[in-house]
Amino acid sequence: MTKSSWLTQALIVGVLLQLAPAACGKDRPFDAIVRRIASRYNARPVRFMGLASFLANRARPEGVRNMKLAVFEDIDTSQNLPGSDFDSFLQDAVGPEFQPFVRVLSQRDGELTYVYARETGDSCELLVVNFERDEASVIQMQMKPEAMTEWFDEPARRARSSAHEAEHEP
C-alpha cells in the first residue's frame, strides 16, 4: 500500500468515526436509559422495538410517527421514589437535549411516569419512562404535530395513558 492510499484510508476512517456518533446521537438517550435500567435491575428488555422496526411502526399508537420501545418485566421497582437519586439518575441518562415535561406518581396504581420532550423540526419527540410495580418501559416517540396539542392541554392524562397505549398495541 502506498503512503498516499494509506493516508486516504486513514482519513476516511477518521471521518466515519467522527460522523458515527452524530448519526446515532438522536437515539442516544433512549439507549442510555435502557442500558441504565438493565444494569440497575440486572434485567434485559423482554420486548425491544427499534425506531426503524417494521413491527414498532405498525403497532404505534395514534398520533405517533415513529416509535422505539423497550419493556422490562419481573423487576422490583419499589425503590423508585421521586426525589430520591432516581430523578438525577434519569436526568443524567436523558442528557441536556431533552427537557423534563411531566412526572406523574401514582401510589394507588404503583406507577411512576416521566416524560421528557425535545423539538424535532416541525414536531416533537417524547421520551416516556414508565415504571409499574414489576415492570418498566422506555418509549421514544416522534409525534405528529397535531397530537401535541392534546399533550399540552392535558399533560398528566396523556403521560398516564401513553405508556399503556404503546405497550399494549398489538
Partner: peptide, 28 residues
C-alpha cells in the same frame, strides 16, 4: 417529601423551550 404520602403526584414543567413548542402546536 409529600410525594411519599400522596396517592397521586403530578409535576408539570414548561420552561422557555417547552413553552415555545406549546405555542407552536397550539397555533395548529
Amino acid at each position: 417529601k409529600l410525594s411519599k404520602k400522596a396517592a397521586e403526584v403530578v409535576d408539570v414543567q414548561l420552561d422557555g423551550p417547552m413553552l415555545k413548542l406549546a405555542s407552536k402546536f397550539l397555533s395548529q
